[in-house]
Every structure is written in structure tokens, then in C-alpha cells.
Deep mutational scan, measured.
Amino acid sequence: TEYKLVVVGAGGVGKSALTIQLIQNHFVDEYDPTIEDSYRKQVVIDGETCLLDILDTAGQEEYSAMRDQYMRTGEGFLCVFAINNTKSFEDIHQYREQIKRVKDSDDVPMVLVGNKCDLAARTVESRQAQDLARSYGIPYIETSAKTRQGVEDAFYTLVREIRQH
């Protein structure tokens, strides 16, 4: 089974770092803004072998026109913010609204991801993020692309959301 996953969120929150940590098991430290990259990885989730087709997208506003296209083809979405960047957390709402509009559905598989949880300088409390996820009816997972904490959990949870859909 193949799953088309799309990673969305503001610029600099760590979308590529999360994806590369999942696929290649290493942490990319330097920031190089993405336009669009796709990665494929075969994994076993709950005993089922599946192929993850992951689209890593641009957070930069100037590429926002490309969003409709990949939102149409994606089956599930990782909505990523950084726990030390309140603005990126506030941006999640717009991504969710755009996904709902493009998919013409209120019920699209999504996982809210709070990345950079290895950093002490948190400005978005776990509780705020949990409340937001609960209001959307989606899971919330904290990750660190640096330490790998929660990385597999985030992507695998999204696959489970798609399966249950």
C-alpha cells in the first residue's frame, strides 16, 4: 500500500529536517529553504509493509500558489509548527483551512506536530497545542528532528489516521 503524505507549515519550522531524519536517519543542521522535494521510503507499520511517498513543501509565502496542487494529491498532512515560534503555531489554522477548502472536506487525515521540542526556549505550551488538536479532532505529537524523538511516531500516526479514514 502506498501513502501520499504531505508536510506543511511555516518556513523554518523543520519540515525538511523531520523528513530527512525519518528517511535518512540524520539531522540536517543548516537551513536551506525548500521549494519542493519528495522522498520515498518502505516501512512496516503495524505489520503492514507500506511505501511512504512524502512531499516536503515550501513554507515560504512566495510558493503558496503551489499549495493547491499538492493538497489535492496528498492523502494525509503533517501540519508542523516549531514550539519556539508562536507565529508558526498561529499559521497552522490557515494551512488547515486551505487543506479543507482544496479537499472540499472537513475530515482530512492530519496530525499536528510541534517540532524542536529539544529546545528550552518554548513559547507554545503543550497544552495550547493539545487544545488546538482536540478542537480539530486530530492527534498532537511533539518531535525533535535533532534527537529523533517522536519522528517515526508522527509519520506513522498519520498513516494510521489515513487507514482509519
Rank of each mutant, 00 (worst) to 15 (best):
V8T: 03
A120R: 08
Y31A: 03
T1N: 11
V151K: 03
R160P: 01
D131I: 08
R122M: 09
Q128R: 11
G74D: 03
L78A: 06
F81D: 03
T49D: 05
A133D: 02
D46S: 08
T73M: 13
E36C: 01
C50D: 05
Y3S: 07
S38Y: 03
D68R: 06
K87N: 11
M66A: 14
V7E: 01
T157I: 07
A10K: 10
G47H: 06
H26M: 14
V13A: 12
D131M: 08
D104Q: 14
S105K: 12
E90G: 07
N25K: 14
V111L: 06
A10N: 08
Y95D: 03
Q98N: 13
V8S: 02
S105H: 12
D104N: 13
Q128Y: 07
Q130F: 07
G74F: 08
V80N: 03
A10G: 10
R134I: 12
G76S: 03
A120L: 08
Q94T: 12
R127Y: 07
L52K: 00
E90S: 15
Q60S: 14
G74A: 15
A10S: 11
D106A: 12
A17G: 13
S105Q: 12
Q98S: 12
M71V: 09
K146N: 15
G47P: 05
I92R: 02
S38D: 02
D32E: 09
F81E: 00
K116W: 14
R67D: 15
V111K: 01
I35A: 02
R40E: 02
A129F: 08
S88C: 09
L78W: 03
E97T: 10
F77A: 03
T86E: 12
E62K: 12
V108Q: 04
G12M: 11
E48M: 10
I35Q: 02
Q128W: 10
Y140Q: 02
G14V: 00
F27E: 02
P33F: 01
Q94D: 15
L78M: 12
F81H: 02
E161L: 12
A145V: 07
F81N: 01
N25P: 08
G59H: 05
A121L: 07
V6T: 04
D118C: 09
T34H: 00
F89Y: 08
V8E: 00
T49V: 11
L112C: 05
Q130N: 08
Y39G: 00
H26G: 14
L158K: 01
M110S: 01
S16C: 00
A120N: 11
I138K: 02
R101K: 08
P109R: 07
A129N: 07
V111H: 02
E30P: 04
F155S: 01
S105W: 07
D53Q: 03
I162D: 03
T157M: 10
D91Q: 14
T123E: 13
S135N: 10
A17M: 05
D131C: 04
D37A: 00
V7G: 01
Y39Q: 00
S105T: 12
Q164K: 12
K41G: 11
Q42P: 13
E48V: 09
G114Q: 04
